[in-house]
Amino acid sequence: MNNFSYLQTAQAKDATAAVTGTKGAAFIAGGTTLLDLMKLNVENHSQLVDINLVPFKGIEQTADGLRIGALERMSDVGEHPLVVQNYPAVSQSLLQAASPQLRNMASIGGNLLQRTRCGYFRDVAFPCNKRNPGSGCPAQDGENRNLAILGGSKACIATHPGDLSVALAALDAVLLLENAKGKQRRVPLVDFHVVPGTTPQRETVLEPGELIVSVTIPAAAHARKSMYLKVRDRASYAFALASAAVGLDVQGGQIRSARVALGGVGTKPWRSVAAEKILTGAPATEATFRAAAAAAVRDAQPREQNRFKVELAQNTLVRALLELSAA
């Protein structure tokens, strides 16, 4: 880890100004990803601007839905009664992520910016287009068992590692962002992360110096009846091989509205509108769920070691829909 200077401020505008005006500066909240990557020399920042005192807090019901401050901690949000009752998929995605120690540290905003666990990205001795654009992607024909089957490119197939982001993608969450000039804008979560294409170093639409202020999740029947299912190599403390965030509003056996997103298989949280189209208006049966799952992975481009994810992602989605519709 390189030497860096450290600044703490309680004002968002001071923080964004400090990061915008200083080359190599970065925000730090919980630090659970940033410090890890700095120790690996994957990220080298000359200045860290601590935003933990910035008042991006609160978990409250608003006219637009549930508003969660970006500096709330994963554990607090995951256990909050409003989240547990009205957005079970969000609560489950948070509580199945990481470990209790990490969840107590990590912020919601930071969690959405968590970087990939791709082993090539995390080791500076390897080429990696995300870390070092143009250097190559050994994952394409290397150790790609846990890399993405959806949204990849010849430049990068790194899996987006998040759980919360998958639940938020399914439930139409909107992020509020604020830049150094104090200007705010709203970005739907599904548009926040971007696929790698030829520029895998760019992972979100966040501009330099811009901060996530809050996340708002609209209230909906399919949000109240939602769940997050995560499949992994061990029972806890592991990233998803495949996960599914689903929400259903079923009336008299017919699906009135449905929300579907997949995790662990995409280069970004993978909302599947195609699956939702098949589900909406259809009977809530396993056959419908199977058809939706097939649609969700139709564009999959598996590599040698991650071929199983095509089947696993579908089975995970079908299982989540079955459990949710039976609940």
């Binding site: 082993g119 050994p138 290397g142 150790e143 068992r145 190599d233």
Partner: peptide, 21 residues
């Protein structure tokens, strides 16, 4: 996991080398 071309491990940490919890 050892990369077949670089002969270098790709999961040399306890987050990605899984031992039972």
């Amino acid at each position: 996991a050892r990369d077949p071309h670089y002969a270098r491990y790709t999961n040399a940490d306890l987050g990605d080398y899984h031992i039972p919890v």
